[in-house]
């Protein structure tokens, strides 16, 4: 599966990074960086948690 970021919608709240620091982080400018976009089955729960906590629904799994 793939993590998809709706970049214009992302406001940098950073809750996704707290949920899944292995997969994404905010850079020094506060912009979200997806460290891994393609994920395996084992990482789906972690990625789903990150998607779920985004307060502005800027992340999804495809």
């Amino acid at each position: 599966m793939k993590i998809v970021l709706d970049r214009p919608r992302c406001e940098g709240h950073g809750l996704c990074e707290e949920a899944a620091p292995e997969l994404m982080h905010l850079d020094d400018d506060g912009e979200l960086v997806l460290d891994r976009e393609e994920i395996g089955d084992a990482e789906v729960p972690l990625a789903s948690a990150a998607v779920r906590v985004c307060p502005v629904a800027a992340l999804r799994l495809a």
Partner: peptide, 18 residues
């Protein structure tokens, strides 16, 4: 409860929540 509803959610999620 990180997914509480008090800031709303989605495109209209509280703009001042930060």
């Amino acid at each position: 409860p990180v997914d509480h509803l008090s800031f709303g959610y989605g495109p209209h999620g509280c703009a001042g929540q930060g």
